[in-house]
């Protein structure tokens, strides 16, 4: 199986004297239908690695290959286009747009992509929310939803454009154990049932335990990679 995303000798440091190294010499490849968890102590560079994988940040050196294509030469617009069509992000603080209803939040990436008609987009967004058990909450604005509900809306929004890669940055960090378990289950389904690659940065041992691949990081480097047989 060919990797969706692959990084080679990836390093990222912030300028300064001395420069602060966030990620150094990381190489890894991520396969479809795989749930990968990146774990490690705070400040080990796991979020920085996620932003590099998600094309939100540019490496100081090394390469990010998406479907075998080098992403470094691409301009901001092209990288935004890839994020739009192929990546989905879920963050710790759900980050829904407060002025829009749950349904409208899920519709946003699809409307920006512009491949479907507005009615199709609306129907798909409603179906996604129903899949998250939020069918009757679709007209509520984020301030009317609980933390767990908001995170599920954020997941629905992340997968609205059927991304090949879903990136989670501490997606359960702000949730109680019941909601956490639910999100973990969803992430597993995204990988195993829908064939997406899921990469999750987490502190949560339960999330890490549920993953197919566990990558431990320390001081910007990969310390250990363990694969759990399915």
């Amino acid at each position: 199986m060919s990797a969706i995303i692959e990084v080679q000798d990836l390093s990222r440091s912030l300028p300064g004297t001395p420069p602060v190294t966030l990620v150094s010499d990381v190489s890894l490849s991520i396969q479809p239908a795989t749930f990968v968890a990146i774990v490690g102590p705070s400040g080990c560079g796991k979020s920085s690695l996620l932003y590099l994988l998600g094309l939100l940040d540019r490496p100081t050196s090394g390469q990010v290959l998406f479907n075998g294509q080098d992403m470094n030469p691409l301009r901001g617009d092209a990288r935004a286009g890839i994020r739009l069509a192929s990546f989905g992000f879920v963050f710790q603080f759900h980050f829904l747009l407060p002025e829009f209803t749950a349904l409208e939040n899920v519709m946003l990436p699809m409307r920006r992509l512009g491949k479907l008609s507005l009615t199709e987009i609306q129907a798909k967004a409603q179906a996604l929310l129903e899949g998250m058990g939020l069918g009757e909450k679709s007209t509520k604005t984020p301030d009317r939803l609980s933390g767990g509900e908001r995170q599920r809306v954020a997941i629905a929004r992340a997968i609205a454009n059927d991304p090949a890669l879903v990136l989670g940055d501490e997606p359960t960090g702000n949730l109680d154990s019941q909601n956490s378990a639910r999100v973990v289950e969803m992430f597993r389904n995204l990988a195993h049932d829908q064939g997406r690659a899921v990469v999750c940065v987490t502190h949560d041992p339960d999330v890490a335990a549920a993953a197919d691949v566990q990558i431990s990081m320390l001081d910007g480097r990969i310390k250990e990679t363990s694969v759990r047989p399915r």
Partner: peptide, 16 residues
């Protein structure tokens, strides 16, 4: 700024 960041991560461009 938070909304801008999330929209950028969603795939909205700088120009958008």
């Amino acid at each position: 700024r938070r909304d801008i960041a999330i929209m950028r991560s969603m795939g909205f461009s700088e120009r958008d």
